Amino acid sequence: MSKKVSRRQFLTYTLGGTAGFLASGLLFPMVRFAVDPMLKKGEAGNFLDVGLKVDEITDTPISVKFVIHRKDGWYEPPKGETMTAWVLKEGNEILALSPVCKHLGCTVSYNTNPQFKNEFFCPCHFGRYTKDGTNVPGTPPAKPLDRYETKIENGKLLIGPLKKA
């Protein structure tokens, strides 16, 4: 016994199939865009020579600029991306701190506000950090500054990936 398809059912199936095909064509790029970062392999912690000798590092933070090469989405700047770190010696440990405030992402500077000597200061909302990057209680930042991994080779400082606080 054969079941006949009515004209109404045929149109429903045809329109439903066409709509499903068009929807999948629209949704696939969005799903791929959302899932793509998870499919990429992470870089295995490249360390960069920042041109600073260990002997030059003291307990006073100094600003160090370095260039990294990474692909941001589909764009990779040909000359790389210039990054900055505050480098200082804390006892026997060398710290490399990110200059990005944890409150709203402004750039912190060291010892620039006469009210807060020997502290990192964020001018956006008066965020303050101690010399080791710890946030001062009662000021806007809720977390300490992020730190870069550091390594010493041949008497020179190498800066690695950022460790989130």
Rank of each mutant, 00 (worst) to 15 (best):
4 K>N: 12
6 S>T: 15
7 R>Y: 09
9 Q>T: 10
13 Y>M: 11
13 Y>P: 00
14 T>M: 12
14 T>S: 14
16 G>K: 07
17 G>A: 15
20 G>R: 08
23 A>R: 00
23 A>Y: 12
25 G>Q: 14
26 L>C: 01
27 L>T: 04
30 M>Q: 15
31 V>L: 14
35 V>T: 08
37 P>A: 06
43 E>C: 02
46 N>G: 11
47 F>M: 05
51 G>W: 11
52 L>W: 00
53 K>W: 00
54 V>H: 03
58 T>H: 08
60 T>E: 12
65 K>N: 15
65 K>F: 14
66 F>S: 08
68 I>S: 06
69 H>Y: 13
69 H>W: 06
70 R>I: 13
75 Y>I: 15
79 K>C: 02
80 G>T: 08
80 G>H: 08
83 M>N: 14
83 M>Q: 14
88 L>P: 08
93 E>N: 01
94 I>V: 13
94 I>F: 04
95 L>P: 05
96 A>F: 02
100 V>K: 13
100 V>Y: 08
100 V>A: 09
103 H>I: 10
108 V>P: 05
109 S>V: 09
109 S>Y: 10
110 Y>H: 03
110 Y>K: 05
112 T>M: 12
113 N>D: 14
114 P>M: 00
116 F>R: 09
122 C>A: 03
122 C>E: 02
123 P>I: 13
126 F>M: 13
128 R>T: 04
128 R>Q: 12
131 K>W: 03
132 D>I: 12
133 G>C: 08
133 G>F: 07
136 V>L: 03
138 G>D: 07
140 P>S: 04
145 L>V: 11
148 Y>P: 05
149 E>Y: 02
150 T>G: 01
150 T>E: 00
156 K>D: 07
159 I>P: 02
